[in-house]
Each structure stands twice: as structure tokens, then as C-alpha cells.
Design a protein around this nucleic acid. Structure first.
Length: 270
DNA sequence: AGTCTTGTTCGACT
DNA sequence: CAGTCGAACAAGAC
């Protein structure tokens, strides 16, 4: 399940193969992977235009063309992007393949078909809806405090709200809360001062560490490959907490499974 | 064969 | 407006 670290890793991996190339043709295995336009329109709009940059904003891969078109790719649950040699033949989970000017192929694999490619002229159409970048300078204990004090609900759904903080998903939300010892149901405005500083540090360090390790690997996930990050809380229901050896619990918070240690993540709410 | 799980977005509702 | 809830998306595990 690609979140910010997996997206960042993907960008770093494919960027060198893409910059300076253009898209010559597009093979479509699942047309709904392209958001809101037919292949012909997509090709017409980027025809002959070289890729200027490949970057990341939140969980989006952002490909900018010299013709000032912007392609935003969201991997959702099972998406992955790979650059393959000219001889590569489409596999069963390949949904889109862009043939590049150097004959290599940008392959979009997506078992569950939730991922999307969206081409826009105005990048603000996508980025305008996104909150602060958690690894950026303007995410710090002062800005987090402003956010927390203006909210009444539980902390966990806030961390997942992309219009507030953009890029954290279910895995790293649980990880950051475990690290800063905050119960997922704690009301935002009741998070103690000292835990707020810890939370900012926990979010940044967890995301950075996961980027270094190229994300999290789940044996049961078909596509998401590689990563060496090992969760402390997420997916560890019934296993021992690495801090206090109590048993990690799983509960539903805003319909999302949330993993935490009942002993060292004290609940402050109600 | 049916149920459950998974992350995100969106619309309906309180 | 803030927040919750359910639906929808699709496939795989059991």
C-alpha cells in the first residue's frame, strides 16, 4: 500500500529514465486507469513534448512536460510504476504502458485497478486540495499545534486527512502515534504539549526512515515490492509491543483499522 | 460461492 | 463547517 515513502522511492527510481524523454505511444489494458479522457486526447496533449521533471507531492507522482501539461499519478492501494526494456511484453496486471522516445517502457501495474493517471493543464487542480507536506519546513510543532487546537475529533483521522497533512496513510499514522505514545482516539485538542513535539518528530523520522529503506514490504501484497521498513504497530495485532512487551491491539477508528499499544499509548479523550 | 479486507474519495447525513 | 458514516472501486484470501 504505497504511502509517501513508497511514492518517494518510486520517483527516485524512475526519474533518471524519464527526464528528457517523451511519450510516443500509450497501450491501455484498463481504460479507467486514465482519468476522464480517451487515449487519443491524452496522446494529443503530450505529443512530442519532453518530460521536464518527475517529483512527488503528497502521495502523487508529478510528471511535468515541457508543453506545460502535468501528469499526476496516484498509486492508491496496489499501483506500481516500473521502467522496462523495449522487449518487455505486457503482463496480467499491467494497466497502462507508455512507450518512451528511447524505446523503453513505463509500465503501470495495478492489481486492484484503483490507481489513476490524471493529465491537467493547471497543477493547482490537484495540489490545491492538499495540506501541508509532512517533511517540509512548514510542518513543525508550531503549525501542528495550530492544527490540533482548531480540531475536536480524534487524532488518527486527522493524520489521514489529506487536506490537512498530505502524504500520511494508515501505516505511518499508526507508526507515528506509537512512537509518540498517543492513543489513536485521543482528541486533537487534548494531545499534551510534550507529545505534540514528539509527534512532529515521529512523523518526520518515520517517513524519512521508511524512505531510506524504500518503504514497507508486505508479504501478502502482490505489487508493492522491496521495502525493508518493519512496522512497530501496524499489522502487529496480538504481538508484543517493542517498548513494553504488552500486546498490540487493533481497533476501528473512523472505519480504519488502528494498531496501538494499550499500555504505552495512554487514552486521553471522552 | 459468499464474506471480509484493503485505502481513498465522495456524497449524504448529523 | 466539522466530523462520521457508508458506498464504490476491484481483487484476493479464506
Amino acid at each position: 500500500m504505497p504511502e509517501l515513502p513508497e511514492v518517494e522511492s518510486t520517483v527516485k527510481r524512475i526519474e533518471p529514465d524519464l527526464v528528457g524523454r517523451s511519450i510516443k505511444d500509450l497501450w491501455i489494458g484498463w481504460s479507467r486507469s486514465i482519468y476522464g479522457m480517451p487515449r487519443s486526447t491524452f496522446l494529443k496533449r503530450v505529443a512530442g513534448s519532453r518530460i521536464k521533471s518527475v517529483s512527488r507531492r503528497a502521495k502523487y507522482i508529478w510528471i511535468e512536460f515541457e508543453c506545460a501539461e502535468h501528469l499526476f499519478i496516484h498509486l492508491r492501494m496496489s499501483g506500481n510504476l516500473l521502467v522496462k526494456p523495449p522487449s518487455y511484453q505486457a503482463g496480467p496486471h499491467d494497466r497502462l504502458i507508455a512507450r518512451l522516445s528511447n524505446k523503453r517502457q513505463l509500465v503501470f501495474q495495478d492489481t486492484r485497478k484503483f490507481g489513476r493517471w490524471k493529465l491537467v493543464r493547471n497543477p493547482h487542480e490537484i495540489t490545491g486540495a492538499l495540506g501541508v507536506e509532512p517533511l517540509g519546513k512548514d510542518f513543525n510543532s508550531r503549525t501542528l499545534t495550530e492544527i490540533l487546537d482548531s480540531r475536536s475529533g480524534a487524532i488518527k483521522p486527522l493524520l489521514l486527512n489529506q487536506s490537512v497533512i498530505a502524504g500520511i496513510g494508515n501505516i505511518y499514522a499508526d507508526e507515528a502515534l506509537w512512537k509518540s505514545q498517543i492513543h489513536p482516539l485521543t482528541n486533537c485538542n487534548l494531545v499534551p504539549e510534550k507529545n505534540r513535539k514528539q509527534l512532529v518528530r515521529a512523523i518526520k523520522s518515520t517517513l524519512k526512515r521508511a524512505i531510506e529503506l524504500q518503504g514497507t514490504d508486505f508479504g501478502d501484497d502482490v505489487i508493492t515490492e522491496g521495502g525493508d521498513y518493519r512496522p512497530r504497530a501496524y499489522g502487529r495485532e496480538g504481538l508484543k509491543c517493542f517498548r513494553c512487551s504488552d500486546s498490540i491491539q487493533r481497533i476501528l477508528v473512523a472505519q480504519r483499522s488502528s494498531h496501538f499499544c494499550p499500555s504505552c499509548q495512554e487514552r486521553r479523550s471522552r
